[in-house]
Write a protein that binds this DNA or RNA. Structure first.
Lengths: 150, 150
DNA sequence: AGAAAATTATTGCACATGCAACGACTTTTC
DNA sequence: GAAAAGTCGTTGCATGTGCAATAATTTTCT
């Protein structure tokens, strides 16, 4: 079906090409949630990730988040600035090391996150539904790839 | 480990959150290849996708590629324009339907693609190595998700 | 046939992104 | 203890992106 018509080219099957499949699927999944968050709450994906991290760990710095979530320094910084402007988180300079920032959710930020999480959970449940008994196998494969491609 | 410190928040484990895992992994895989293509050949990801499609199917239109590769109209259009400027492909108006374009690789484009493909294959082989016997399971899971989230 | 609706590729524009440079601060080294 | 090297967060800038609007064409409908 995807055979090469051009004799100068080797055979190649894009439909089975793993990096491609990942990118397409990831974009689909991510944008589905992104639209919901954007429309209903005005929150972008980087903002959602930052919110989540700050929500679950005390006094994170920008750098901490960068490493955990594999999100660029500058992305994290800008997301944090926006969240601060919207009143969802507070920045505070670390007294011990004044280069660092300590990020904390405000009450409003906590309330927002409490609304966002169930939506994410519901989405995950949908996916597990679709995957059925293959869910663990997928996670295993993802573990392997994450490990292997560092 | 990822337990909620904040009593107002439900528990949530980002490390096991499927959409997140996909996005991170996809970005990793994709950017690894992208850097290589960019540095050595000056080709971006959208350009590589277009190149590939045009290489393997005759007289594709912009719209055809959009649908196949789930790449935005405008992205495809701009990628095609760049590839044309670099001499890798030729645009030609379809005589039957003058709204459509017929895209074809030039000789240079074919030569380029012939160099790109082995690199992609090698990358895929690496991944299969890492996945080992779990490769089919992963593809099955991907099939399910692609189907299910349309 | 002719008007209205639909389709195709391109483009303008506002916004996101990645990277390098910067200032503020800390750690290391001599 | 001062200078050099390193680290942290922000920002400027060139480039990429998504979306809506547009012009050119085709299809549909009366």
């Amino acid at each position: 079906m995807t055979s090469a018509r051009n004799p100068a080219l080797p055979d190649f099957d894009l439909e089975r090409y793993l990096p491609y499949r990942f990118v397409v699927l990831a974009a689909q999944l991510s944008s589905k949630l992104a639209k919901q968050y954007k429309q209903e709450f005005g929150i972008s994906i980087p903002e959602w990730r930052v919110l989540l991290n700050v929500g679950y760990t005390k006094d994170l710095s920008i750098r901490d988040i960068e490493q955990r979530v594999s999100l660029e320094r500058s992305k994290v910084s800008r997301a944090a600035t926006k969240l601060e402007a919207k009143g969802f988180l507070a920045k505070q300079v670390d007294a011990r090391d004044k280069r660092l920032l300590k990020l904390t959710l405000t009450r409003e930020g906590t309330e927002l996150l409490a609304k966002l999480i169930p939506i994410a959970e519901r989405f995950q449940a949908e996916l597990n539904q679709i995957l059925g008994e293959d869910t663990p196998a997928l996670h295993l494969a993802l573990d392997r790839l994450m490990q292997g491609t560092d």
